[in-house]
Amino acid sequence: MAKLILSVDGQVLKEFNLSKERTLIGRKAHNDIQIDNLAVSGEHAAIITILNDSFIEDLGSTNGTMVNGKPIKKHFLQNNDVVEIGKHKLKYFNDAPTAATAADFEKTMIIRNPAKAAPPPPKPEANMGDTQTNLRPTSEAPKPAASATTTATSSPMPSAPAQAPSAPPPPPAMAPPMPPPRDHAPHPAPAAHHAPPPAGAATPLREAAIQVLSGAAAGRTLDLTKNLTTIGKPGLQVAVITKRPNGYFITHVEGATYPTLNGTSLGGAAHPLGDHDLIEIAGVKMEFFYKP
């Protein structure tokens, strides 16, 4: 759950959990976060929390609300934002993504429309990965169609993937249509997990270019700045050079015959490009090179 830490002049005063949908901040006693200081309006600001997201809104206060040094009317709070009200500071912490593992966190879940379904929406304090179900990890459901490997549909797929596993006869009545009880597990220990860094975030790739060696455009260079750069003649022979975190690759796109790389036909697959590789496409020779 997200929380705010109230401090003044670097002295921590109190910690508040954002458990309510609307948390009021102000000088008067009825506020959820009361700051008894004349610079603070009676009802100064409100924080609206929807599951894992929180927004702060200034309620027309006399002296205004700042977030990270800038005056705001409304602001979508991000982890480590600092809200300033007069001399008081409220630092916003949202550790939701680290409460569950990254994989659990990104799992798609259903939030029910209260008008349609009886059970209350998942409580924000439940572990993100748990709100959906209360299953035990023992279940081994049959795996339909594409499982652990990449599967192109052009290849024959098992045609009847999931006929429900040994489905017992239909229920006597559709009477109890309520979903399974939700797991209101206590909030997991806030420490421990850290989301792994995105796997693709590697060191920035060196800049590269291709130089045309023959034909009308001989001598010209083309910087490979885009993720995808096509070369060749549309309708005749086209290849694409893809810029990826692990290097540059060339792949045939269209044309009855394949371009060549260092004299060898590309075929249908992607080929990594090395410094000073020679490409021949639509009768034109070009060279790939890394920029100094």
Binding site: Q132, T133, L135, E140, A141, K143, P144, A162
Partner: peptide
């Protein structure tokens, strides 16, 4: 698919 441990793919 979503939900359960392997049930999402069911």
């Amino acid at each position: 698919g979503m939900g359960g441990y392997n049930a999402g793919e069911v």
